[in-house]
Simulated scan of single mutants.
Amino acid sequence: MGRRLEPEYFERLYRSSPDPWNFESSDYERRKYRRSIEALGDRRFRRALEAGCSIGVFTAMLAPRCDELVAVDAAGRAVEAARRRLSGRPNVRVLRRTLPEEMPEGPFDLIVASEILYYFDRELLLETLRRFEESLAPGGALLAVHWRRRTRTYPLQGDDVHRLLLENTRLERRATAAEPEYRLDLLEDRG
């Protein structure tokens, strides 16, 4: 497998702050979450996967649209916080998993990869994309959303992630939004 930011990197962040990216209070996050939900249209999902759920803020917004939602994160502190936040939602399971090695068993009608794939290098991103494609149900969708501003910390930049996804997927692009702060692509299995 390729290089990535390892779970311990995220554990350190969550030790220093219970919400290191201000998911609960950031205007940027609220705008991005709203646009992500809008991109899904009025579709309801039988079974969905959220990769990199963190403390579960977006998970709580996505849950009403899903019969079953599996939310995963590699950081134990984040998983504990997400479980507390979502404890009253019987349709949501929050699991500690490292992707792509510990990919939950599909199929999924929706996979959300929001601000996670740039933590992987090119090879690991492509392996993760293959696992996502294999786990999608016929007609399923992959929603990818990533920060576009430059960073020196992550192996890839957000625009690099989306370029690699589009160049290497069998899925068809259904929607795209390139805002100054983030990029969103909704890809669909037409198979």
Rank of each mutant, 00 (worst) to 15 (best):
L62Q: 06
F10V: 02
A82V: 01
E134H: 13
E172W: 12
P180R: 10
G2M: 10
H162T: 05
R122P: 03
G106C: 04
M1G: 14
L62F: 08
E179K: 06
T169W: 13
V161C: 10
R4K: 11
R47T: 03
R183A: 14
D185S: 15
R15D: 13
E11G: 01
R122V: 15
E172N: 12
T176R: 14
Y154P: 01
A78W: 03
R65Q: 05
S25Y: 01
Q157T: 09
R170N: 12
R170S: 15
R170V: 14
A175W: 14
D159C: 10
W21P: 00
L13P: 01
G158E: 07
G76I: 03
E115I: 10
F10M: 07
D19A: 09
R65C: 06
R44T: 11
G140T: 07
N22F: 10
R150A: 13
S114T: 05
R31D: 15
D42W: 08
G158N: 11
L40W: 06
S26W: 11
L69K: 03
L62E: 05
P155M: 13
W147I: 01
R183T: 08
L99Q: 00
N91L: 02
L49M: 09
D109K: 07
R89E: 05
L166C: 13
D19N: 10
R190H: 09
R77H: 11
G76C: 06
R131F: 09
V72C: 03
T151I: 05
L164K: 09
E172S: 14
I55A: 03
F120T: 00
S16P: 01
E188F: 01
L136C: 09
A48Q: 08
